[in-house]
Each structure stands twice: as C-alpha cells, then as structure tokens.
Amino acid sequence: MTRPQISDEAASHPLQSHALDVPNVRNFRDAAILPLRTGQLYRSGSLNRLTEEGAERINQLGIRTVIDLRGNAETAVWPVKGHNAGVEWVSLPALPDRAGLVELGFTDFSGFDGKAWPVDPAQLYPFMAVYAGPAIGHLVHRLIRPGALPAIIQCAVGKDRTGLAVAVIQSLLGAPWPDIVDHFVQSNIELMLTAGPTSFVDEEGVTRYSHPVTEELLGSAMEAINRTHGSLTSYMEDHGVTAADLAALRSLLVP
C-alpha cells in the first residue's frame, strides 16, 4: 500500500453539518460512504452526556453495540450511563498504556518508551496507527459478531481515534480515498475547528487543545501502516483479522 496522493477533490468539502440529531452527543454521523451500506455503522463523540431523549434516538436507530475507544482514565472520569437495554457497551482503548497494550495482545514494544501519547497531531497519527492496531483488530471482531450491528464507534469527540478506525474500515471495504478524506475532515465542521484549535480540559484537569484534522494527518497514519506492515490487509492480519473476518465484515457493510 502506498500513501494516497492528496487530491483537489479531497481539499474541497461543503461547510455544512452532516451530524444526526442525538441530544448532547457531538459529531454523531453515519460512517457509510460508498460502497458501505447506510444505517449500520455510526461514529460519534462520547455518549457520557447522553440524555433520555438521546437514548430514545439511539433506540430508533436500532443500535446494538457501542464500542468505546477512550482510555480507562477517561471512562473513569466521564463514565457512560446506560440508558438502553439490549445495547452492548464495549471498551477497546485505542490509546492504552503498556499494560493495556499487553491486554489487547500487543507484543512488539520496540520504539515504545511508555511515555504519554504525543500531543502534536503530526506525531500522534503515525504513533496511533502503530499502537492502536490491536484495538482496531478487536473492533473488527466485535463488528462481525452475530447481532452486533448497527453499531457506534466513539471516543472523546469522535475525531482522531474514531476517525482513524473508521478510515481503516472504509479503506478495507474499498471506499475511494477522496471520499474517505472528505468524511474524515468533516469532524472539523462538526466540532467547530475550521478556524483552528479549541481548548478543552482533559481527564486530569489539564487544559489542552483539540486540533483540526487534515488529509496529511490521515495520510501519515496510512504511511506508517504501510511502513510497518507492508499493506493495510497485512496490518489487519498482524492484529488477528483473517481474510474470512474481512469477508464477513464486507458481507455486513457492503450491499
């Protein structure tokens, strides 16, 4: 897999929201772009502020599984309160510490110094591509379980961890790169990042900044996957996702 080239089409996207109306949930969108089937895979920011009205909206969408890519510290401070009977809530931290990586089956710690994950997006995306692999592999296995769909993939604001995981799935299922990028950078509009970074307070009470996402960032993650695994398919295979698993995912998400 070579790094996709930046395209003029991908640099131009409409400045309008594509979010679905789920009260108190940011960046809630259908993850379907051609050739994916609509109404089966959604993406969002954290559901920790979900209201009864929002829970009813999720019921209307038929959601069966919520996959949370946030870390344990985040979920401890901002737990998700279950409103929906019959919805399975799954924790798969995409940015775990070393112990979390071991729990997810990670074995090669060359280059991992145990420090906090990079704050600079230019460093975060290649690093995330490598070390979020176990969570993305488990994510695919969760999606193909009988009765798991429709499902939501969520993190703090549904931008970086969710953005990469969704882009990997879209790529695996044959979506065109310009469409993947358009969908990815839509988070800038949904999160009001088109004018630049915005501040937030993290789970430790520290003021940090949420940065806009770009095609270059997503491309750097794909390049890291190619460099460390040779191809996106090999990346998935190295994290326990077989050809049969991918075929099952395709049968569920591609008409």
Rank of each mutant, 00 (worst) to 15 (best):
L61N: 04
P134Y: 10
V80D: 10
G111D: 00
V22A: 03
A94Y: 06
E223W: 04
I58Y: 02
D182T: 14
T65G: 09
P121M: 00
R70S: 08
G196A: 11
T38Y: 10
L61D: 03
H229T: 03
S251C: 00
S171Y: 12
N72V: 12
N72I: 05
M128D: 02
L41A: 01
A195P: 02
Y209W: 06
I169E: 10
G100M: 04
L47H: 03
G196M: 04
I180S: 08
T65P: 07
D182K: 02
A76V: 03
A151F: 09
N48A: 06
L253A: 06
I189Y: 15
F28L: 06
I153A: 06
Y209H: 11
L92D: 05
H141G: 14
L249F: 09
K115F: 00
G100I: 11
L50W: 09
Q123D: 14
A122V: 10
E203I: 01
D97S: 04
N226K: 02
D97Y: 03
R26D: 15
Q154G: 09
S17Q: 12
L34K: 02
V168F: 14
R43M: 11
S231H: 14
A151C: 01
L218R: 11
E74G: 13
S220C: 03
N84I: 06
S12D: 11
D202T: 04
S171E: 12
M128R: 00
T107S: 13
D179A: 15
E190A: 08
G54A: 13
P134M: 12
S187F: 09
P79K: 01
V77C: 09
A94F: 05
L139T: 15
E190I: 01
R37S: 11
P134Q: 06
E204C: 03
E223M: 09
L218K: 10
E56L: 04
K81G: 05
W177D: 06
R250W: 02
H229W: 08
P212L: 00
P197S: 02
S46N: 11
R208L: 02
V102R: 08
I136H: 07
L249P: 14
V140W: 04
L173P: 04
A116S: 13
S44E: 05
W117A: 09
I136W: 02
A85H: 01
D245F: 13
P96L: 00
S17K: 10
L34N: 11
F28V: 10
